[in-house]
Write a protein that binds this DNA or RNA. Structure first.
Length: 596
RNA sequence: GGGGCUGUAGCUCAGCUGGUUAGAGUGCCGGUCUGUCACACCGGAGGUCGCGGGUUCGAGCCCCGUCAGCCCCGCCA
């Protein structure tokens, strides 16, 4: 068989000559041998058509009246998702029988051999779907993952993921970054997310932790002189999940020595531009930058979606003299009135305004006041307090609307962020640009603890304070900036990084701020402090959330659609049933007693 | 930890104000069919209405609890 055919691609094996989805007009006349899954079967009695599927696509197999008797018999009994091997000749389809919806639609294979090599029970969830059919429930897709992953959409997502990974590796290798692995069994960290713990059998009562990131290891690699490191790093965080958060996830982690912030941002831009290029998009460099404070002021979030220009304004001075009851009480406490002047916002319905106001309340806000101007008519919840001139001062003209709220910034910012996105969605605003990358820089080093109000670190404790602010570290911590930066794309945080502390004395001061005594700092981070004292080069780095990048480039709605075997929002794996109770003997070996 | 939505046939869904025998499409099984491509047509099987309790003459529908999935807040240095 093989000797007689034309082997024209690496996809051939000792059992097949091509993948199903590869066949084109150029193959017409060739004898081919294929293996794949029965996607669909159309049995017309005297002739049977099989859509045979593999990872490359689908090709039609025709079994007509001239096919061998045993082939016709097997074809007549095939059921969905059975694995078959087929041999036959590639023929051109007659002009009126081509299928333009199929990449292989100009050809078909006339089967002369057909055998079932992997019988299949009726699939619990369908793999082949009709146009417009709904997907099965996510629970079932996760439970029967081997079937869900057969769907062409899922195969495309994982293939894209592969290509992006290879591209990232190449981009970083070209920049002389070295790929170096770091441990999965590591040491618990005192701050940050909850660790996944792994009990030690050899050391009763002691535990490894799975890494939340390879942070300290990559810094030690810099101390060791490797200069530029990267890793496709699996990270683990035992926190509650979202559609864009999994308990284990993959980062493109990098670190470089003798660099400043601009160098690191340049490396990361190079990788992101390469990844987007792999996704078919050309992105201009350098990316714009926005200060953290400005992002919150104008967009209410540290991950603004800059595809749209709509921005938040401070209207306190304009609104105060109007004596609007909704604002008065709050304004006495030094709060601000901030709002959005929405061009074309007159198209927002009363229902839209009510829903946005409801969102505002759910986020702890006072609600949402709104004014619409249409001609000389001014309407809305606080419309009677506004004149056309007062609205014009806010930038609200004919056919526009103003949406505003009052309160402390920490409440109004998230409210206006959500309202902004809600307005954009409801008005179907066209984006000014398809790909809005931005760097968010000048993050604060500390943020107030939500319960005590005391300063706690906004990032990890290895982030360098801004050198200009170092003197105020103890006296005015909230005014200190960090050499920390985030990459943001269309309102999604792609990753973050920082210039690290390389002065052991500064690192000890920072640990002291965390409430660690020198002894505790040594016990927990001694290996880092020892390293910093051994001759540490200035260094900094970044971590790109890889799964999130794939999700965005694949246009997927959830991380679960780009990860082969993801967890549910309750961190369960439905296919294999993890986590599961351990058997008592194993627990005894690990010196563990379970309390229920 | 808190809030919301969902759970009815293998799958996707409908099921009125609580009313007598719970439906549709698709898949599955059987049959007819030589150019289909979501083939078409004929026939058939298929139900713990997530689970437990309660209200009621009567519950898929109302109430309480619980489980699971999803979305959001908290959380995610």
């Amino acid at each position: 068989m093989r000797g007689g055919g034309f082997i024209d691609s690496v996809s051939s094996t000792s059992r097949r000559t091509h993948r199903c989805g590869e066949l084109r007009m150029q193959h017409v006349g060739q004898q081919v041998r294929l293996g794949g899954w029965v996607h669909r079967r159309r049995d017309l009695g005297g002739i049977v058509f099989i859509d045979l599927r593999d990872r490359a696509g689908i090709v039609q197999i025709a079994i007509g009246p001239t096919a061998p008797e045993d082939v016709r018999r097997v074809a007549g009994g095939l059921t969905s998702e059975t694995v078959v091997e087929v041999a036959g000749q590639v023929t051109a389809r007659p002009a009126n029988m081509k299928n333009p919806e199929l990449a292989t639609g100009d050809v078909e294979v006339q089967a002369t051999l057909l055998s079932v090599v992997g019988p299949a029970v009726t699939p619990a969830i369908p793999v082949a779907r009709g146009k417009g059919d709904e997907l099965p429930a996510e629970e079932l897709r996760l439970k029967h993952r081997h079937l869900d992953l057969r769907r062409p959409e899922m195969q495309a997502n994982l293939i894209l993921s592969h290509r992006l990974l290879q591209r990232a590796r190449r981009a970083l290798s070209d920049l002389e970054f070295l790929e170096i692995e770091t441990p999965i069994l590591t040491k618990p960290t005192p701050e940050g997310a909850r660790d996944y713990l792994v009990p030690s059998r050899v050391h009763p009562g002691e535990f490894y932790a799975l890494p939340q990131s390879p942070q300290i290891y990559k810094q030690l690699l810099m101390v060791a002189g490797f200069d530029r490191y990267f890793q496709i790093a699996r990270c683990f965080r035992d926190e509650d999940l979202r559609n864009d958060r999994q308990p284990e996830f993959t980062q493109i982690d990098l670190e470089a020595s003798f660099v400043g912030m601009d160098d690191v941002l340049g490396y990361v831009e190079a990788v992101l531009v390469a990844l987007w290029d792999e996704g078919g998009h050309r992105i201009a460099r350098p990316f714009p930058r926005i200060a953290w404070r400005d992002a919150l002021e104008h967009y209410g979030t540290d991950k603004p979606d800059l595809r749209y220009d709509l921005s938040i304004a401070d209207w306190t001075a304009h609104v105060k003299p109007l004596g609007v009851p909704f604002f008065q009480a709050a304004l006495r406490d030094g709060a601000r009135v901030r709002g959005l002047a929405v061009k074309g916002g007159g198209a927002l319905s009363r229902k839209d305004a009510d829903e946005l106001a409801e969102t505002a309340k759910q986020l702890g806000g006072a609600g949402l006041a709104w004014v619409k101007r249409q001609g000389e008519q001014i309407s809305g919840s606080v419309g009677k307090h506004f004149t056309p001139d007062a609205l014009a001062a806010l930038g609200v003209g004919d056919g526009d609307a103003a949406l505003m709220t009052v309160g402390p910034d920490r409440v109004t910012s998230p409210v206006l962020d959500r309202v902004r996105l809600g307005v954009i969605q409801r008005l179907r605003t066209q984006p000014k640009r398809a790909h809005a990358f931005t760097w968010v820089v000048d993050f604060p080093l500390f943020e107030p603890d939500p319960e005590t109000g005391k300063p706690v670190f906004a990032h990890h404790p290895f982030t360098s304070p801004h050198p200009d602010d170092l003197a105020r570290l103890d006296s005015d911590p909230f005014s200190c900036r960090a050499l920390h930066y985030d990459a943001v794309y269309n309102g999604n945080e792609l990753g973050s990084g920082s210039i690290r502390i390389t002065d052991a004395a500064v690192q000890r001061r920072v640990f002291a701020h965390l409430g660690l005594s020198p002894e505790e700092a040594d016990a927990r981070f001694g290996f880092l402090l020892t390293g910093l004292q051994a001759g540490a080069p200035p260094h900094g780095g970044f971590a790109i959330g890889f799964d999130r990048v794939v999700m965005l480039l694949a246009g997927a709605g959830s991380l679960r659609d780009v990860i082969a075997f993801p967890k549910t929002t309750a961190a369960r794996a439905l296919f294999e049933g993890a986590p599961a109770p351990a058997n008592p003997a194993d627990l005894a070996t690990l010196h563990i007693e379970v309390k229920r």
